[in-house]
Design a protein around this nucleic acid. Structure first.
Lengths: 169, 169
DNA sequence: ATTTTATGTCAGCCTTGTTGACATTCCAAG
DNA sequence: CTTGGAATGTCAACAAGGCTGACATAAAAT
């Protein structure tokens, strides 16, 4: 504890935001904020007997229409068996449509149906509302810092996915 | 979508950071960053046959030594049955010690044992390392913004807990 | 004396993650 | 053309960690 508190830059300037105390506050901020982040969608999903796994699948299919199962797997970081169970119910319920690839017929291309888009909207509206309130309260500079720190916190492969989604806009 | 893009302040200034696109980037940043945030502790916990639930319990007991079960419950937001299962294994494994309260003998006060502190250190060192790298790369202003947005994103009750932990430092 | 609070525990259920095994389809390299 | 491997789907079994409901106990509070 003692030796890592109040670190110095080569220049000698004290970096107060890098003390163990500050880092721990950052850790706890992530924990408590993530709870808020998922709270609203979780409440909505209860009405549909779906869980977060369904939300994640719907989100990223909606974000990248026509994406393949494999791409979704690497974004979500779960096993194909886990994802498949979720996709199966979404397809059976008519929220997601799976089409065999034209060039490579092994691949399945995933798209939201009209009903799928409706749920996607309901979920992302709720999540965006909270994000909007937080962003507005914090202001543009804080939002920029928020994004900068989160990007720096990602694993390289996740950052790749994140950036790829950004550019696609 | 269209009507909520490019909102205006009373003054008339366009708030680019509140567009649906910006909000969605914020959502995805939270998702990918949280994965990184938990990745290192998760790897460590595998060696002990523990999960995130154990980590959370250890973290907050270490943060508030002598805390009661009820307080821990409201911080973690799980049922007493869920928490009890985790606490039972931690106590059985000699990482956590539960003492009957002196003033109110219904309460159990929880503390980390020496072995508990060792694991707490191992976990929080790993998590702080990642946070430190991210903070250093982003800089002090970004870190301040990061914390501001996360605090605004919390549910009020979670913010209460967050602030209470902050002040206790 | 009665009610409420704090805690523990048992049983059972659900979601969502895991591994392992196996089948199918089909591209691509030899 | 044959074969290897990639992409996908599916079945089975299992574990972690949520949940609810029910019940027990001790002690504080009324």
């Amino acid at each position: 504890m003692a030796e890592s508190t109040g670190p110095k830059r080569p220049g000698g300037e004290t970096l107060l935001f890098l003390t163990d105390e500050q880092l721990r506050k950052g850790i706890e901020a992530m924990f408590f904020a993530y709870r808020g982040f998922t709270a609203d969608p979780d409440r909505i999903l209860e009405n549909y007997a779906y869980g977060r796994a369904h939300h994640r699948a719907i989100h990223f299919i909606g974000r990248s229409p026509g994406t393949t199962v494999n791409n979704l797997l690497s974004i979500l970081g779960v096993t194909k068996q886990s994802l498949n169970r979720v996709l199966r119910t979404l397809i059976a319920d008519g929220l997601v449509e799976s089409r065999v690839g034209t060039r490579d017929k092994r691949e399945r291309h995933l798209n939201l149906t009209e009903a799928g888009w409706r749920l996607e909207r309901e979920l992302s509206d709720a999540q965006r509302d909270r994000m909007r309130v937080a962003f507005r309260a914090a202001g543009p500079e804080a939002v920029a810092g928020f994004r900068t720190v989160l990007e720096a916190m990602m694993d390289p492969e996740m950052r790749r996915h994140y950036v790829a989604l950004k550019e696609q806009s």
